[in-house]
Computed example of a mutant assay.
Amino acid sequence: MPYVTVEYGGGDNPVYQVGRKSFIFFRNPRPDAVDPDTGERYADVIVFWVESEADKQALIRDETSPFFTTAHFNGHLSVLLRAGRLGELTRGELAELIQDAWLSRASARRADAWLKAHPPAG
């Protein structure tokens, strides 16, 4: 994606930004995302911004999907995904997730230019 910069947050985790706005970042283990069987904090949580609450709900509604959220992210337009579950997504699904995260945070001018150059399929 164009205009992407990478900053590094706590624990030297990458934070991908467009126009100084984060759209994907890797979290440090936190008490709000834990393995229900062991109580261990997940060390591989990735946060992806979404366009709307409806988009968020569409991704997390199905409990078998790899997407989830926590109370910490109530009201935040993002979904969580464990890196260990990335293989459950096709390359196309992952590319769409990344593009949509970028589009949700890019300026209108940049988003319009991207969409004109890469029209959605279908």
Rank of each mutant, 00 (worst) to 15 (best):
Y3G: 00
V4S: 11
T5A: 08
E7M: 10
Y8R: 15
Y8C: 12
Y8G: 09
Y8K: 15
Y8N: 11
G9V: 11
G9E: 12
G10R: 15
G11L: 09
N13K: 15
P14W: 15
P14L: 14
P14I: 13
Y16Q: 11
Y16S: 10
Q17A: 03
Q17I: 01
V18E: 05
R20H: 10
K21W: 06
S22L: 07
F23R: 07
I24Q: 14
I24K: 15
F26S: 11
F26Y: 15
R27G: 02
R27E: 15
N28E: 10
P31Y: 05
A33Q: 03
V34Y: 06
D35G: 02
P36D: 05
P36K: 05
P36C: 04
D37Y: 04
D37F: 04
T38L: 03
G39V: 04
G39E: 05
R41V: 00
R41N: 07
A43D: 12
D44E: 07
D44N: 02
V45A: 02
V45R: 03
V47E: 15
F48M: 10
W49R: 14
W49H: 14
V50Y: 10
S52Q: 01
S52E: 03
E53H: 03
E53D: 09
L59G: 03
R61F: 02
R61S: 12
D62V: 03
E63Q: 12
P66F: 04
F67D: 02
F68P: 01
F68R: 04
T69L: 02
T69P: 01
A71N: 11
A71T: 10
N74D: 13
G75V: 04
H76G: 00
H76K: 04
S78K: 02
S78W: 00
V79N: 07
V79A: 08
L86C: 14
L86M: 15
G87I: 11
E88C: 06
L89W: 08
L89Y: 06
T90C: 11
R91H: 08
R91N: 06
G92T: 10
G92M: 02
E96N: 10
L97I: 07
L97Y: 05
I98D: 08
I98Q: 14
I98A: 14
Q99F: 00
D100G: 03
A101G: 09
S104R: 09
S104K: 09
A106D: 06
S107D: 07
A108E: 12
A108I: 08
R109E: 10
R109V: 08
R110D: 06
A111P: 00
A111D: 01
D112M: 02
L115D: 00
L115A: 01
K116V: 06
K116C: 03
H118V: 03
P120R: 13
A121K: 13
A121N: 08
A121Q: 12
